[in-house]
């Protein structure tokens, strides 16, 4: 079933992709092939493979239970939040919080996770910014 869903998604993707390829505006200065042909070839490969997924699906993969899926979704949310917090709160604070959260969700005790988050963040800050001179996001406090 999972493969059939993949096939349906791939089919839609292929159709959408080819359709988008056909509406590419061509400039008057073009080579014989133009910007459309290669994407249309790729789109065709996607459509062919999607047909195969639907026709002959593989055995079902082991999907994690709903709780685990939510866990992954939550981690994604934290990471997206992290990317938005970076320019506002600076590297050290945002990284400490994000790393602490991930460590906690991976099964560490809450206190240990907070410590690990701070250590990770400071460790990266010291080694990459202070020692190697990489530019990291700067917050209102200068770090």
């Amino acid at each position: 079933m999972s493969d059939r869903i993949l096939g349906a998604c791939a089919f839609l993707l292929g159709v959408l992709y080819i359709w988008q390829a056909t509406v590419i505006e061509e400039s008057f200065l073009s080579d014989p092939v133009g910007p459309k042909a290669f994407p249309i070839i790729i789109g065709t490969v996607i459509l062919l493979s999607s047909a195969y997924f639907i026709w002959r699906p593989d055995t079902e993969p082991e999907w994690p239970a709903f709780g685990r899926l939510a866990e992954i979704g939550f981690a994604v949310a934290v990471m997206v939040g992290y990317t938005m917090a970076l320019p506002e709160a600076g590297f050290v604070v945002s990284t400490a919080i994000a790393a602490a959260f991930l460590t906690w969700r991976l099964g560490a005790h809450a206190v240990a996770a907070v410590v690990a988050g701070i250590v990770t963040s400071l460790g990266i800050y010291v080694s990459f910014h202070l020692v190697l001179g990489l530019s990291l996001a700067r917050g209102p406090w200068g770090f």
Binding site: M79, Y82, T83, M84, L86, P87, F91, T95, A98, A99, A100, L102, T103, L106, G107, A108, A116, G117, T120, S121, G123, I124, F128, L134, S135, L136, A137
Partner: peptide, 24 residues
């Protein structure tokens, strides 16, 4: 234990990409 290591891996990945483009 991986539970301490994997978050660090994730954070270092972010650092590297952010270092190139500086864009969220």
């Amino acid at each position: 234990p991986p539970k301490y290591l994997m978050p660090a891996v994730a954070m270092i990945s972010f650092v590297g990409i952010y270092g190139i483009s500086g864009s969220s």
